[in-house]
Design a binder for these strands. Structure first.
Lengths: 180, 180
DNA sequence: TGGATTATGTCAGCCATGTTGACTTAATGC
DNA sequence: GCATTAAGTCAACATGGCTGACATAATCCA
């Protein structure tokens, strides 16, 4: 093999200079800052914070999940979760149901009220995302998906895939696919 | 004009169903979580937090900026910034210099020590970004840039562009473009 | 020149949300 | 029947946001 052999399937892909990578890092910072900014404002009116939003989101999108699942997804301690989860339950946004096969498990479901708040919080984020994906273009969409997946720790990717491409488990139900 | 007139320059771009947008939202959450995870671990060894990282990053990448610039970039209060900035200054990671034209301004510069820590914190993030951009492919790179820019509040985009595509101002100096 | 404004710093206190460690309760599994 | 597991709880602490009030020094302007 010659030294500058360039096989078909392995294009050299010129590595970006550090300054460009730094620019991407900064863009990601600002993008995430604004992505979370819209719901933050709404949450204030309810006396909730971003932590409540995260819990409500996952309970709403993946209803019937266990407390342990939520801990695993959010990467926080039981005590941290407990604080916000309790408030969501006490105020009627989330309900618990004992697991059918293992009655120690507490399966989490959004109430109607919870679904309504989740939808309201998600709305500006989905609008923002739709606009940004349109700005990226059709092929960009797939590239962005690959990019975001590759940003995730390799060992967590299967877990995340299971979450973002949900296989409806018995006990969970698929959401209707409405456009916001 | 007929109702289903589809002009050349305005392809319909089928709107994604909400469930796909939710998947992107979750991917962004996990991606950002892991993107910040690496430096968080390093920061612990120094008794610093993510707030210190943000300050050090911008001081390092845009040295010579004013306190007011930093407040504007980070979207936090003077008092919040002051707490972490003071620690960075006291411990010799950042220095201040009175502005040449307006001596009320305190221009911020990283020390050698600050540059070293910034580089160490950035290293795993740049590696992660480079890998993710490679996964996205060459054209993906441009799409991702458009996507991230479009995720930012429209009114902030000029400001952010000025930051990510820096025009070296008098008093600032461009960093050497080393690959990490 | 003197008063208003501006850039920055600081004190005090509050809130949200993360952490660790220890312990309880109820259900499960062997 | 006893160890393990899922979940909840109590207490204490750290980080990093926030508001409000005020101080200092430099600048700007009438």
């Amino acid at each position: 093999m010659s030294e500058d052999d360039t096989s078909v399937e392995e294009l050299p892909e010129p590595a970006l200079p550090a300054s460009q990578l730094h620019a991407f890092a900064e863009l990601l910072f600002f993008a995430y800052r604004d992505f979370t900014g819209d719901p933050d404002i709404i949450l204030k009116d309810f006396g909730f914070g971003r932590a409540h939003h995260r819990v409500l989101h996952f309970v709403n999108r993946h209803s019937g999940l266990r407390v342990a699942d939520l801990l695993d997804i959010l990467n926080i301690t039981k005590q941290s979760l407990s604080r916000v989860l309790k408030q969501l339950i006490d105020q009627g946004y989330v309900t618990q149901k004992a697991g059918a096969s293992d009655r120690r498990e507490r399966l989490l479901y959004p109430t109607e009220r919870g679904k309504a708040l989740a939808a309201r919080l998600a709305a500006p984020q989905l609008i923002r995302l739709r606009g940004a994906l349109q700005a990226a273009g059709l092929e960009g969409e797939a590239a962005i998906r690959r990019f975001l997946e590759a940003m995730i720790n390799a060992e967590d990717r299967p877990k995340v895939s299971a979450i973002t491409n949900p296989t409806p488990l018995p006990g969970t139900h698929a959401d209707k696919d409405e456009t916001v």
